[in-house]
C-alpha cells in the first residue's frame, strides 16, 4: 500500500459545510467499519459455537469474495482501488449473517458477487447505493434458490428448529422454544442473524459508539412492538387468524428482526438523514415486518421489510428541519 493509497483509506467523510465553524468528531470510514466488525464479533462467535466450521466457512468465503469482487471491479473500471477501507468486507459479513450455515459454496460466491456488483458498484460504489447491498444479494439468492436458502433444509443435522416456520404453519402457540433459548440463539435461521442476544449486544455497542444513529433502531423496534401488539390484541376483530398474530416480543426474538434493525436498516447510504425521516423510516420498517410475518408468503419478513422501506428513503429525506434562524416568524 503506497502512501497515497493509505491517505485515501484514512480519508474522512467530507461534507459540504456552511460558514459556522464545526468540530470534526474524528470518524473515519475504516474506523466505523472497525466498530461494526467488533459489533458483529459476538454473533459470529455464537454462530461458530453452534454450527461449527460450516458457519466460519460461509462467513470467510462471503467476506473474501466481496472484497475481491470490489477490488477487481475498481481495477477493471480504472477507479481508485479503495478496498482497504473494509466496507466490502463488512458488507460480505452482513450478507453471510443472513445465510444458513449449510449454504453451498457456489451460492455464497454468486451471492457475494451480486451483493457487490448489483447492490453497490453499478450505482457508483460506496455511499451511492440506494439499497443495503447485503440485502440485494440476499434477495437475489432467495428468489433464485429458495430451497438452498431455507435454514431447515440446509441444516438437516442440527437439533434446533426454525421457530418462524412453526409459527407460520402451526400458530405461535405451537412454538416450543422459551424466550431464554431464543435469546441464546438456540434456533435455526440466518447463521448470525438468529443469534438474538449477541446481535443485540453488538447493536447496543454500535449505538453507544455512535457508529449508527439511535433513532432508526429505536423507531424500528418500537414500530414492531406497537404494530405487533395491535395485531395481537385487535387482530381477531380485524379478521386475522389469532394463531398467526403472535405477542409482540416474539417478533423480536425470532428471525432477523433485531439484526435488521441494528445492522441493515441503519445502512448509511440508504437510510434517511434527518430526525423525522429516520423515525418514520423505522416505524414503516416495523409495520412492514409485522405485515409480512402475518400476511406474507415468506416466514421472516425483516430483510424484505428493510429492502422495501429503503425505496421510500428519498421521500423521507424531504422531511428536514428548517435551518437555524430561517424558521417561521
Amino acid at each position: 500500500m503506497t502512501q497515497q493509497e493509505k491517505n485515501l483509506t484514512e480519508i474522512r467523510p467530507r461534507f459540504v459545510v456552511e460558514t459556522p465553524p464545526y468540530l470534526h468528531r474524528g470518524y473515519t470510514i475504516s474506523g466505523m467499519m472497525r466498530d461494526t466488525f467488533i459489533a458483529l464479533l459476538p454473533a459470529a462467535a455464537m454462530a461458530v459455537y453452534y454450527f461449527g466450521i460450516p458457519a466460519l466457512r460461509v462467513m470467510c468465503l462471503a467476506a473474501g469474495v466481496c472484497a475481491l469482487t470490489e477490488a477487481l471491479w475498481q481495477k477493471a473500471l480504472g477507479q481508485t482501488v479503495r478496498v482497504y477501507d473494509c466496507t466490502a468486507l463488512i458488507t460480505g459479513l452482513l450478507f453471510a449473517f443472513l445465510l444458513p450455515a449449510g449454504a453451498p459454496w457456489w451460492l455464497v460466491v454468486v451471492g457475494s458477487v451480486l451483493t457487490i456488483v448489483l447492490g453497490k458498484q453499478v450505482f457508483g460504489g460506496l455511499g451511492c447505493n440506494p439499497l443495503c447491498p447485503a440485502l440485494v444479494g440476499w434477495a437475489s439468492m432467495t428468489v433464485a434458490w429458495p430451497t438452498y436458502m431455507d435454514p431447515m433444509a440446509m441444516n438437516l443435522t442440527s437439533a434446533f428448529i426454525d421457530p418462524l416456520v412453526r409459527m407460520k404453519f402451526f400458530g405461535w402457540e405451537a412454538m416450543p422454544l422459551s424466550a431464554q433459548s431464543l435469546l441464546l440463539g438456540r434456533q435455526l435461521g440466518g447463521l448470525g442473524s438468529a443469534q438474538i442476544g449477541a446481535v443485540l449486544l453488538g447493536g447496543l455497542y454500535m449505538v453507544a459508539r455512535k457508529t449508527v444513529r439511535w433513532e432508526i433502531p429505536t423507531a424500528f423496534l418500537v414500530g414492531v412492538l406497537f404494530f405487533g401488539a395491535i395485531f395481537w390484541q385487535l387482530g381477531e376483530a380485524m379478521g386475522v387468524n389469532p394463531a398467526s398474530a403472535p405477542p409482540p416480543h416474539l417478533y423480536l426474538l425470532t428471525g432477523s428482526t433485531l439484526f435488521a434493525a441494528f445492522f441493515l436498516a441503519t445502512d448509511h447510504a440508504s437510510s434517511p438523514v434527518a430526525f423525522g425521516g429516520m423515525v418514520l423510516y423505522g416505524l414503516l420498517c416495523g409495520l412492514m415486518v409485522v405485515l409480512i410475518r402475518i400476511f406474507g408468503y415468506y416466514p421472516d419478513g425483516a430483510p424484505f421489510a428493510v429492502l422495501v422501506t429503503a425505496l421510500v428513503t428519498p421521500m423521507f429525506d424531504l422531511i428536514r428541519s428548517a435551518p437555524y434562524g430561517k424558521g417561521r416568524r
Binding site: 457456489w106 454468486v110 448489483l118 453499478v122 437475489s140 428468489v143 433464485a144 434458490w145 438452498y148
Partner: peptide, 18 residues
C-alpha cells in the same frame, strides 16, 4: 448445475438487458 431461477424471473430480464 442448479438453475439460477432469478434469470427467468422479471428481475433477471432487467439485469440481463442492462
Amino acid at each position: 448445475f442448479v438453475p439460477f431461477a432469478l434469470m427467468v424471473e422479471a428481475p433477471g430480464a432487467f439485469i440481463c438487458l442492462g
